[in-house]
Amino acid sequence: MVNDGGDNDFEASLRRCWEGWQQAMNPTGGTASFPWRESLERWAQLLGTDASAQVQELGARFQHQAGDWLGTMQQVAAGFAGRDSSAAEVAGAWREAVEAQGDAMLRWMLDAARGGSAVTDQPWLRDVAHAVQSGFGHADWLNAPVFGPAREHQVRWQALAKLQRDHQLQMERYVAAIRGALDDAFHRFEAKLAGHEAPGNQLTSARAMFDLWIDAAEEAYATVALSEDFQRIYADLANAQMRLQAATRHELERACELLGVPTRTEMDAAHRRIAELERLVRRMAAGSARSATPGPEKPRPAPKKKAAPKPARAAAKKAPPRGRSKT
């Protein structure tokens, strides 16, 4: 459990948060911002000291999403609380607040596009690719003719650099599509807000604004994600990632071979043989069981309505059970 010190610490943090909030809401408070994120950050820190790993991870996710999205929405809501507004004004303020944070709030979407922790999409590799693409400040190295004893190596490295470049291009297309969905989401959000302008139908909390935004964002995203264009963009990105990853692994395997280290390809070849042999044995066993039993296996006719089909006892005797029985 959190100790007393932790409790007190968090209460003090909440007090500071509350004071900041009151200052932000005070008409004379100027441009003070609501310290919701700081409050959540402190909360997650305190949680981290005592909780299980699973709870800590959950706390981190909560801190990230509730801090970024809900916190920003609350900030926007505070700007309009208690005064007349229009859907366009609110949606515009929301767009401004989101866009002001750059890619930070969409980090998780971009990570997902990269397949989590893709080894071929490390920042240093992107830097190298940019350097390569610019020809290390000289001519277009990627397309330079190659010759000499290291020719074959250089050809491979050029190909690898081109794959990296292509991957970057496909990633940029993907990100542009996501940005397009986000742009549409702001329009949809405005339209949804307009639907709440009638008296009696107004939104009554920042959380309700947030939920409305989620609806708008999902609708916009689904429209893009189900489009023919996105289908191609998605596949092109996946294929570019795989080509790059395959080429990178090939280089690694070459290095391993030089050092006498067994490679993935060698291991795979052995595993393939084992799987094929097991399959062959199973087929032979099934075939021999079938040949030992007279008559072909016949599918049962369609049963009459509600009539229970008869058990196929004879067929059950044909093939011996495989595997290890525990009963």
Partner: peptide, 15 residues
Amino acid sequence: MKGPLGFGADDLMQE
């Protein structure tokens, strides 16, 4: 209040 938001500063503070 006119517009889509029907809450005041107090409501937001309570939230």
